[in-house]
Simulated assay, not measured.
Amino acid sequence: MNKITQLFNIKYPIVQGGMIWNSGYKLASAVSNAGGLGLIGAGSMYPEVLREHIQKCKKATDKPFGVNIPMLYPNIEEIMSIVVEEGVKIVFTSAGNPKTWTSFLKEKGITVVHVVSSSVFALKAQEAGVDAVVAEGFEAGGHNGREETTTMTLLPMVKEKIKIPLIAAGGIATGRGMLAAMILGADGVQVGSRFAASVESSAHNNFKELIVTTNEGGTQLTLKELAPVRLVKNKFFEEVQALYEKCPSKDDLVKLLGRARAKKGMFEGDLEEGELEIGQISGLIHEILPVEQIIQEMISDFETAQKEKASFEF
């Protein structure tokens, strides 16, 4: 057992990212049943919808699972209450100060993990009392750190500063990527894009098909004035780029973004007008697969890479 399998009481040190519009109870329970840690993505759920997904997840798996909670949402108090009421044992927090909720959750016996994009924030999370951190590099899909530090440089920098377990995220979809992250100091990995393109993902099939056809260079980080986000270069993305040429104000960007654009793209399947969040690693994802097969392929690839590494000579 390593630090992450021990912390969560799971078979493999693989955590499924709690992605908005992708991570319902079907995906979370499938990942947990296959030996990883599934996370329900609270970011795209009204409080009562989240409660329903937690209850369904408890029926779908007897294995540990958690909830990912971005702390920038206005109904955060209600969401935290539901997590406690429903007996959720693991919470991943992001997009906010870990001090705000960590002690509250820990007092309820909940294991807390915080997502960071720099060693400075990793230290703050450790000081706040979290049980582990996810260090997410610039390659990741969705909302991203302003520092634009890649996973390969971020991991050893964070490892140097903290004593608690470290989970790597950003650009990991294979067993080889997992081994590389662990050699750089990670105790486990968080995988997003690869699970977004799974049978059990709650994303629209149009979006899943787009992930497997998005090539190297098909995504880019944008909207840094609001909150940096990595998007597929579709019609909406091109509209954002065209607006940038006019030196827009923050209000101009907010107006273009509008409401529910991520839902329109990832959940409803509008590939033109939707906000399509996916990581750079999509260029290495070639088919939509069941979760169990994804995890087994990762473990097999990890073991093969380990054997190859053992035979390296200089």
Rank of each mutant, 00 (worst) to 15 (best):
Y73C: 09
Y73M: 14
Y73F: 11
P74T: 15
P74E: 15
P74K: 13
N75Q: 14
N75I: 08
I76K: 14
I76M: 05
E78P: 06
E78D: 11
I79L: 13
I79P: 11
M80A: 14
M80Q: 06
M80K: 15
M80V: 15
S81I: 09
S81A: 05
I82N: 07
I82A: 03
V83K: 04
V84S: 11
V84M: 04
E86C: 01
E86L: 00
G87L: 01
G87T: 11
V88R: 11
V88M: 08
V88H: 08
V88D: 07
K89V: 01
K89C: 07
K89Q: 09
F92Q: 11
F92I: 10
F92V: 14
T93I: 02
S94A: 11
S94M: 00
G96S: 06
G96L: 06
G96N: 07
N97R: 13
P98L: 03
K99W: 05
W101E: 04
T102L: 00
T102F: 03
T102N: 02
S103A: 08
L105C: 04
L105E: 00
L105P: 14
L105S: 02
K106C: 02
K106H: 12
K106R: 14
E107Y: 04
E107I: 08
K108H: 14
K108V: 07
G109C: 03
I110G: 04
I110D: 10
V113D: 12
H114W: 03
H114F: 05
V116G: 08
S117Q: 04
S117T: 13
S119K: 15
S119V: 05
V120D: 05
V120Y: 14
A122I: 03
